[in-house]
Design a binder for these strands. Structure first.
Lengths: 237, 237
DNA sequence: CAGATTATTATGTATAGACATAATTGCAGA
DNA sequence: TCTGCAATTATGTCTATACATAATAATCTG
């Protein structure tokens, strides 16, 4: 008996975390139910629910109706990354942003692109490639295909001064998507644009976005050597 | 007046999303307050709060006390990645897992490592390097330094059959940490271990974990060519 | 008029009670 | 014994009300 009453959901969260850390509730343990915990902590069940739900969202607890709440066996660390618009990514580092369009054309996409975008391989799509600069130095190559069925307004744009990256976020909303991170060797063309040598390791981000049932755009962002993404993990506490 | 009543927080969330998409509330708009929305939707304020809070966590809305709730200007896409234990990462792909320890020794860490781990450069730390295999093929090189002040029990382990990766998660808890993703060129040693050529692009993940005020471990995971991390973005809807 | 103080307001959170829902458990019938 | 239905149970959620808190707006004072 602690005798103390925890009256905020944060305090309850901390106490639950403390017990998990202290191995009072080792991984795999089914912890007492909400009603019992509420009684022990001297608070309402809703408050306990709030605390446990937040921990479940972080991947520390696993909850299932009727089965109860258990401490996750493999506490996978969950990292949330914010992927800003490229301009923002650069200006947030206190550097000046530059943009240079390389090409913009409506053309027949390669078979693989057509398949990924779920469009008829015989129909056209908008292809835009551009270079984003940080302090006059090349930062990232943007190679993008836009589904004109979903975003017909894109055909009227030339993306000469405004990047497709920015135009899309303020014009064509998306409901969901997927993102992929890889390391690749720079092609001859990429190397030249990024002022590096062919075969140099580049960080590649591929994004595919959807608006409900339709694909919006497929973007391949190719970051030069030295680029890294950093974020925090674990309980922000 | 819609006349319809939205009685679940999910329905309210959907309706708010619909209005944002339909540009009824374009980016930057301050939306009506919770009380008014509750009245309009015919539900309790707590229900509206639940819906809006979830959207704020996703980065779609920005909320501040008194100032109100506004639609985010730059809807940064937020991706949450689950970083599992390496064994799990491999077995979840339906492949067999193999482990091979390369070295394990208590020694004086390089200056940079000591600084990152916040330990006295004159004191020792535990260094472990290992190779994780997927279907007998090299998958990732683990190069790790463990702070023996925080995890003294690690000194008694030889990590011959159980990887430090797994031993740590079940033995030494951590409260928070940071993670970094980069592309790098394989060194001669890394190339040999990963059965590739020196200079080949490798995907590098660096993780530093803390337990309250003390560092626990610094791990560098070096994934062979072809490796990629994929995750979803946007509203899981 | 500047600066400090107070009022207002929107979000944040707690509570008690109720009902909804999913999933397990156990019982009953074939 | 196996199958299927029903009881149980823990989480999930909604409501109405209340108070806390932070930040802005308004007001008062030197």
């Amino acid at each position: 008996m602690t005798g103390l009453t925890f009256n905020s959901w944060q305090a309850i969260q901390d106490e639950v975390m403390r017990r998990i850390h202290a191995r009072v509730w080792p991984p795999g343990t089914v912890i007492p139910n909400e009603a019992d915990l509420a009684l022990e902590f001297g608070c309402a069940r809703a408050t306990v629910n709030r605390a446990l739900r937040a921990l479940a969202e972080m991947g520390i607890l696993e909850r299932r109706r009727k089965a109860g709440t258990r401490v996750a066996l493999h506490p996978v660390s969950r990292a949330t990354l914010d992927i800003p618009v490229i301009r923002q990514e650069i200006t947030e580092r206190g550097q000046s942003y530059g943009y240079q369009r390389l090409s913009c054309a409506i053309l027949r996409p390669p078979a693989e692109i057509a398949r990924t975008l779920w469009i008829n391989p015989a129909s056209d799509a908008l292809h835009v490639s551009a270079l984003h600069l940080s302090e006059t130095r090349p930062f990232v190559i943007e190679d993008r295909w836009i589904n004109l069925t979903t975003a017909p307004a894109a055909a009227a744009q030339d993306f000469e001064t405004l990047s497709a990256n920015e135009w899309l976020v303020v014009t064509i909303p998306y409901t969901h998507g997927s993102i992929r991170f890889t390391a690749a060797a720079a092609t001859a063309q990429e190397a030249e644009l990024l002022c590096t040598t062919p075969g140099a390791p580049v960080f590649v981000v591929e994004r595919l976005t959807w608006d409900h049932e339709r694909t919006v755009t497929l973007a391949r962002l190719c970051y030069g050597p030295g680029y890294s993404i950093t974020t925090g993990i674990g309980t922000p506490s």
